[in-house]
Amino acid sequence: MTISLFQCVLIGLWSGFCLAGMLFGIYTNRCLVMAAGVGLILGDLPTGLAMGAVGELAFMGFGVSQGGSVPPNPMGPGIVGTIIAITMKDSGIDVGSALALSFPFAVAFQFVITATYTFATTLTETAYKALDRKDFKGFRLAANATIWVFAAVGFLIGFGGAFSSEGLQKLISFIPGWLSTGLGVSGKMLPAIGFAMILNVMAKRELIPFVLLGYIAIAYLNLPVMGVAVLGTAVALMVFFHAGRGGDSFVEEVEVEFEDGI
């Protein structure tokens, strides 16, 4: 499948917008959102959605890295990974392999962003100097510069990824069958990292019953996700309303009652 120049530009604009959205805090720099957009632009929404789901779960934990470090960027799977998944669907690349193949890009983009933040450090100096001159326009220009750099960087990454997708395609066709199968298997395992990272941050000792609750609801009961959320809400509210008198022991009681109900 070839990508027209118009589609390249659209993907570039979409990537620029999504990356800038990371600074706006509007949650566009997420695999789920980006992949759906690329899917729409390339006319293959189902693959875009599937890629978005797999990538989102794999990268979910990276969004919460602590200590101000920049995590691998979801543009890897969200933009490049989705382009790979859609254009190379016929050559045996599934979303799992596309996720694994796109990881180096995610790391590369991470470095680009770190570099942008580092160079942007000069902006403060520019702003001070502008204020010394009472040049308030200059001040505002400096205060909005990072976002424009982000939009430009996003555009270049999206456009470049789409434009050279044929080169990418050739490169990937050299990959032997066992490797792409293996990468597909790895791709299905990668979400474990995202889940483990997020659980590492969220799951305190007193939340262990909820870990079990989620496992039971899916593995044994096969509930749909909404059902799991409602079930979790119900138990959370019970704990909340009884927190005053039951304390910690109540959490366990709820869990026992629930297991009896199966």
């Binding site: 969220m202 939340l207 909820f210 609750l213 609801a217 996700v225 799991v228």
Partner: peptide
């Protein structure tokens, strides 16, 4: 935590 561990 419930939803995440279920989906994991």
């Amino acid at each position: 935590v419930t939803v995440i561990s279920g989906l994991a």
